[in-house]
Design a protein around this nucleic acid. Structure first.
Length: 476
RNA sequence: GUCCCCUUCGUCUAGUGGCCUAGGACAUCGGCCUCUCACGCCGAAAACAGGGGUUCGACUCCCCUAGGGGACGCCA
């Protein structure tokens, strides 16, 4: 049997982190088994579905690089088919029309709640003659659920789950306006799409019992179910905007790499021994459902960040530069020029070593791409006291003559200078860093000087020493 | 309220009755490296929710309690 999975989001909002993980698990499972992964937009609620949300979900999946097979299915387009199945069920006696008014239902609900019952609809039209129907009420269609016994699901993640059939009420298949409900639509579509494994959030576990009977009423094969635990916020409570119920686009904007997010999401609720860094090919090779945990997990940005730092260090250089380019140029206020790009290329490895997000990387790249006056941070300014400035002034003379300009020679020159002046190396390295980068943290100072090049180094030094470099005008 | 699910370090987790004086990762705290910040390396602190069983032996199996989560729509 070929595995067919699906991701079936409802387009009522963006693709959030929980949905992303569900999509990932479905994708991984199908890829692992050489099966098919399909996408279905559950837009049966026209009132709440928006084109923007659909767009957002597609974008999110695209960014995460979770590709799906075949066409995207829009559930709403299958409404006629869903309704036809309901009619069939009506004909076969597995469903019936219910003429209850919303008021009646509301009353039933309060009563049921007060009496501590889960089943709220009392089935009053289940065996009643439709001839008794009150005038002016368009009925809904309800499915008949078993009255006695129990229903057992062998969930691939949760194990055996049992519920008493008395808990299951006759849910609605067709609304008063004849439109199909989610319960009906999922079952019909999953069957029509030949879905073999329904992998979805834990919040659907209760639905599975109802759906199981619907499958049976239709005489269809029942797919395997796998209900994966939900993701909670960092405080253990339900995910809120504050801690992660963001669209995946927000993660992109925060400077995370899709492969980092995938790795993070994968390890949230799934494990393969002690493995932590798992790239996607490896994940496909290893992924299975019985290693999925049963407990809800909390979103932990710190861990995501550390994974992200890892993938930034692995990433292709050109790709990284393209990724940070928009932000970089925004901060710069102008496009990166060729010398800037060249320096960035050389300096990227040094920079990426000390950043956790693309945002930080773009920020740190400024030291190589900026022209004009360099903003000096307060901490850096503190380093540039008169004493230090005097050293820098003195240093620029041998610097001007240094040949060839490379890390090794820069190091010998600086070390020699310190020795002759009888000062510790840090005494000169830190002011240099401050003058050259405007900050107190940067890659190694020889690396920075080497990449910046003689002219730029002298230019930046002159800006803090107050000396005008012949031929150079601050501000360019 | 009712039903369903869950419960190992702060967090993600390993653990499928003896390999556990409970392992790894992130975070934290020390140290080394060192021109800063990182990286890297070394080390420390840190958990089986509680109570009953079952068993020669329970983190592992069963029950209860507590806590957490989910569901209870003519939403999906």
């Amino acid at each position: 049997m070929t595995v067919v999975t699906r991701f079936a989001p409802s387009p009522t909002g963006f693709l959030h982190i929980g949905g992303a993980r569900t999509a990932l698990f479905n994708w991984l499972f199908s890829r692992h088994h050489g099966g098919t992964f399909r996408l279905r937009i559950e837009d049966t609620d026209a009132k709440r579905s928006t084109p923007e949300a659909i767009e957002g979900i597609l974008d999110g999946l695209g960014w995460l690089e979770l590709d799906w097979d075949g066409d995207t299915v829009f559930q709403s387009r299958n409404a006629a088919r869903h309704a036809a199945i309901a009619e069939q069920l009506l004909a076969s006696g597995n469903a019936y029309r219910c003429f209850c008014t919303p008021d009646e239902l509301a009353q039933m609900r309060t009563e049921a709640r007060a009496q501590g019952r889960t089943r709220l609809y009392d089935g009053r039209w289940r065996d009643r003659d439709p001839a008794e129907a009150p005038a002016g009420i368009s009925p809904v269609v309800r499915v008949k659920m078993p009255l006695q016994g129990q229903t057992v699901i062998q969930d691939l993640v949760q194990g055996e789950v049992t519920v008493a059939n008395q808990q299951l009420d006759d849910f609605i298949l067709l609304r008063a306006d004849g439109s199909p409900t989610y319960m009906l639509s999922v079952v019909v579509d999953d069957h029509d799409m030949a879905i073999t494994h329904v992998i979805r959030g834990d919040d659907h576990l209760n639905n599975a019992f109802r759906q199981l009977h619907l499958y049976q009423a239709c005489g269809w094969d029942i797919p395997d179910f796998a209900h994966i635990p939900l993701i909670h916020g960092s405080d253990g409570a339900k995910l809120s905007k504050r801690h992660g119920a963001l669209g995946v686009d927000a993660y992109r904007d925060m400077g995370y790499l899709p492969e980092a997010l995938r790795n993070y999401l994968l390890r949230l609720g799934w494990s393969h021994g002690d493995e932590e860094i798992i790239d996607t090919p490896q994940a496909i090779a290893w992924f299975d459902l019985d290693s999925v945990g049963r407990a809800a997990a909390r979103m932990d940005f710190t861990k995501l960040e550390s994974l992200n730092a890892h993938y930034i260090r692995q990433a292709d250089r050109d790709r990284l530069i393209e990724l940070i380019r928009p932000q970089l140029e925004r901060s710069l206020g102008h496009p990166i020029d060729d010398p800037g790009l060249e320096r960035l290329n050389k300096g990227l490895d040094g920079l990426r070593q000390r950043t956790k997000t693309l945002l930080e990387l773009a920020e740190s790249a400024l030291i190589y791409c900026r022209h004009g006056p360099l903003p000096i941070s307060p901490a850096a300014a503190k380093l540039l006291d008169p004493d230090a400035t005097a050293h820098l002034k003195r240093l620029s003379i041998p610097l001007r003559a240094l040949a060839p300009w490379n890390e090794q020679n820069l190091e010998s020159l600086l070390r020699e200078y310190c020795e002759q002046s009888d000062i510790k190396f840090g005494k000169i390295a830190q002011p240099l860093r401050a003058a050259l980068t405007g900050t107190t943290k940067s890659p190694g100072i020889f690396e920075v000087m080497n990449i910046l090049g003689r002219d730029e180094v002298l230019r930046r030094l002159s800006m803090v020493t107050g000396e005008t470099e012949p031929g150079f005008f601050p501000g360019r």
